[in-house]
């Protein structure tokens, strides 16, 4: 009989103690938070200074994160959203659920302007191949289409890189995109729902090239000391994926949210990203990029459709792609 009030008392104290520590809820994609992702280090680093508790909530990939925000609406518990990309920001802004943030100075290869979102890393889409199996990689979409090389790509309707490729072709060829797709059709072995299936099948030898990032070879080099993978440099230029973070207008921790976004582009966080997210940091850390990144191709031309334009072009581009590949 005595233990019950005691336990209740302890519980009250515990709850009170908990209540004193504000909680910052970060909605992000799946690959951000595992032990091998950037999440744990960033959580630890930020918690050391903020006197708060960072809690991650995960939802698939970037598109799933946005769908989640839309599902939850203004009632969301999330304070910060990490991991949308430039193909999604227009739709995200249109929901009216995001608040303006301080956009940090970055060294992105393309101009980036969006009052609601702060970039934290970026990468170039590219076709990755195995140097031991392919001596002369294609130097453009045209060359690729003319060859009998086999490629695996992702579905733009279910995957971020898939959508990125669609925009890449659109940005490079505009009206001519449909023809490029028609020419590429016989090179495409299959279209996967997500990046991981495509990349896994490529590693198993199902194709000569796979749609991924210019930074992908860095993973094999640094984590597996395997230098056989490389990205094919395309003359048309490479489409850029910028990953951004935003603050929800409904947050009950606006100051903490701002602090977290600032931390995300700090030197500490930025130096974690290249070897966890395998992307370029939005702000090059003082210590520079990790050894191995210098071996990656450096595209001379960077492509990126402005968010509004990308959003507008999306439905038409998907239909175009579908028609070309359904023949």
């Amino acid at each position: 009989m005595k233990t019950l009030p005691l336990a209740a008392g302890l519980l009250t104290i515990a709850t009170a103690a908990l209540a004193e520590t504000p909680v910052l809820t970060v909605l992000t994609y799946d690959s951000f938070t595992p032990e091998w992702g950037p999440g744990p280090a960033i959580e630890k680093g930020f918690e050391a200074t903020c006197g708060c508790d960072v809690q991650y909530v995960m939802a698939g990939d970037g598109a799933a994160v946005l769908a989640r925000v839309q599902l939850e609406g203004a009632k969301t518990d999330a304070d910060v959203v990490v991991g949308l990309d430039t193909n999604l920001t227009a739709a995200a802004s249109a929901t009216g659920l995001f608040a303006p943030v301080a956009v940090p100075a970055t060294n992105l290869p393309v101009p980036f302007e969006d009052a609601n979102f702060a970039p934290f890393d970026w990468g170039y889409f590219a076709f990755v191949y195995d140097k031991t199996k392919l001596d002369t990689p294609p130097k453009s979409f045209v060359e690729l289409a003319a060859s009998d090389l086999k490629i695996i790509i992702q579905d733009p309707r279910s995957s971020t890189p898939g959508l990125g490729l669609l925009m890449w072709v659109k940005a490079a060829y505009g009206e001519g995109a449909a023809q490029v797709w028609a020419d590429l059709a016989d090179n495409i072995v299959t279209v996967t729902p997500g990046w991981s299936e495509a990349y896994g099948m490529f590693l198993e030898g199902e194709s000569d090239l796979v749609l991924s990032y210019t930074t992908s070879p860095a993973y094999h080099l640094i984590a597996e000391t395997d230098d056989t993978k490389a990205a094919a440099a395309f003359d048309e230029g490479h489409y850029v994926q910028v990953e951004v973070a935003g603050k929800l207008a409904s947050t009950d921790q606006p100051a903490l949210a701002d602090a977290f976004l600032a931390y995300l582009t700090s030197d500490a966080a930025q130096s974690v990203l290249p070897v966890t997210n395998w992307m370029y940091p939005a702000v090059t850390p003082a210590a520079g990029l990790p050894a191995g990144f210098e071996t990656l191709i450096a595209p001379t031309k960077s492509l990126l459709l402005p968010a509004a334009e990308a959003e507008e072009a999306r439905a038409g581009a998907i239909a175009e792609w579908q028609t070309a590949l359904s023949r």
Partner: peptide, 10 residues
């Protein structure tokens, strides 16, 4: 997933 991964296209 089966249809999409092995289907070969849209």
């Amino acid at each position: 997933a089966v249809a999409l991964t092995l289907g070969g296209g849209p």
